[in-house]
Design a protein around this nucleic acid. Sequence first.
DNA 1: TATAATAGTGACAAAGCTTGTCATAATCGC
DNA 2: GCGATTATGACAAGCTTTGTCACTATTATA
Lengths: 316, 316
Amino acid sequence: MSKSKRLLELMMTVNRKRKFTVKELAREFGVSSRTILRDLQELGEIGVPLYSEVGPHGGYQVLNERVLPPIAFTEEEAVALFFASHALRHYADLPFETESSAALSKFYHYMPGDVRDRIDRMKNRVDFIAPTRLQKSPHLSVLLDGAVRQRVVRIAYESGGSTSDRLIQPVGIFANSGLWYCPAYCFLRSGYRLFRCDRIHAAEFDPSAVPLNLGDVDLGNWEDHRDEPLKYVYLRAELTREGVQRCEAELWHSPKAHVREDGSGWLAGHVPERDIGFFAKLFVGWGLDVTVHEPPAVVERMKRQLDEIKARYPDT
Amino acid sequence: MSKSKRLLELMMTVNRKRKFTVKELAREFGVSSRTILRDLQELGEIGVPLYSEVGPHGGYQVLNERVLPPIAFTEEEAVALFFASHALRHYADLPFETESSAALSKFYHYMPGDVRDRIDRMKNRVDFIAPTRLQKSPHLSVLLDGAVRQRVVRIAYESGGSTSDRLIQPVGIFANSGLWYCPAYCFLRSGYRLFRCDRIHAAEFDPSAVPLNLGDVDLGNWEDHRDEPLKYVYLRAELTREGVQRCEAELWHSPKAHVREDGSGWLAGHVPERDIGFFAKLFVGWGLDVTVHEPPAVVERMKRQLDEIKARYPDT
DNA sequence: TATAATAGTGACAAAGCTTGTCATAATCGC
DNA sequence: GCGATTATGACAAGCTTTGTCACTATTATA
């Protein structure tokens, strides 16, 4: 094997193993230790952040700042990737320690000139917008870390005007229209709850608490684990075309809209009784784009709410 | 310079120039043409898609499927980039021809084992959600291309139930909560308008139309170019804490909310008179989280709308 | 049609680089 | 102290790389 190729493979190998000894690599590549030593020095000169320690249990390490091997991207892929990470700049907080802008500028900088030109021309013409929020969510990394390592986190959570201490075991975190949410098992309520991260004012691991075994609960299925002995009511509503689209945008789970040929549609399905307040408020906002048929409780609430709003604006 | 380093630099150089001759590179690197030929052959074996043509004006080319040079990403950066492109999967349509999943799997595949493990563990625990829409927006590439190259596009646009033919010159495209929008100069209305891409049922370049010179209008500033001789009215409203947050999410431009210490706030600013319908509908949806003081026209509309909704649900 | 520009191949020797071996040092944990 | 480990230097054998030259082939263009 030529030296050039050996260096490339060496690069990948040291990135794969994080820790290794010279002898080990020498055996693996079928060359002498001296050669590997020389190669490693060269890799270091090229930019791979190697670190070594002598003595037993010593050896080489690749530092946290690691170099990924050359990845072949087509131009299209590179552009797509660029704009994907470009979209991240709308987020005030991210669960990653790094600033994504670093990766972005690297990506941009190393691209051949004409791809860069293409990106420049597109930069102000494509965007993925997320509402920029003022709310800060500074505890994302703790929550994510807690979810990944299944730890119990003690949070100070603000709800209904007051702040309470809770122990939670996070399932994960997700961003939706600019806000971060954290579904978690709440030890206070003995059940899964959805927390808004901007209302979490403190978060830290609680080393004394014993985590539950919830390894297979994740963002994709946590809602199935809400073991709620809930009462459900049947919801039925007629939707205009606009109404159908609002369904898609604003109702993430719960009943999906049925669509007719002409774009209009209807909602039908069971919803938790405790959510009727939510639905009433929501449907009032949709105005004439929805007509609620069932349940009467939602209709009642809507009427009451309409009256309350009307009371705000007395006739002159 | 050692051969290994020369090969690396050669890789970057041929990616930068798209077209080049052997002689050219030989001069640049200070080696003989024969050496460059040998090097290029080796690059080809490694995987760089080179293509050559003999004769005058011939030379080497790197094919469209291009290999980007080795980029040094830190682990954190790689992870952030992964999740950024992971988020793209929520979009039914993208303006790029490529499937972003290709780039994603490459990225994933080439990462060292432990980073891959880390990603695996995080995969179901972090997400950037955008509402998945049923609406298809199949003409994104044409619109984007039209924006980049400043061409006039003929579209069939559906609005208010009917479909009309229009000539537009796109400014760009952007995605917001799952829907694609296209601000453009509309030749029919002689002014800038915002189009929803899922309502554009056909789009193609109009070669006969003469584009305007709008090169410096882009997504960042097109709203300033709406040269509307509009009447403005003064809007003033009180917001609860919830109301402030809805402002941030739903009012992208127009007056920004002012926030008090306790989280509540108020809206104050001039808004186009023709938007009072929009605001009335919006504020009705916000219910008790907003109290509109001015203008009377908005309040009037809200009242009327409340009555209309109430009429839907007659007292039994 | 001739010419110049271009890629591509083979051969060869000189120069240069790479490699293994050996010797030696230094550090560290046990 | 011993063994494992990195680290460095020297050196010669062997291998690789490089430049040169000679040649072929293709193609646009003058």
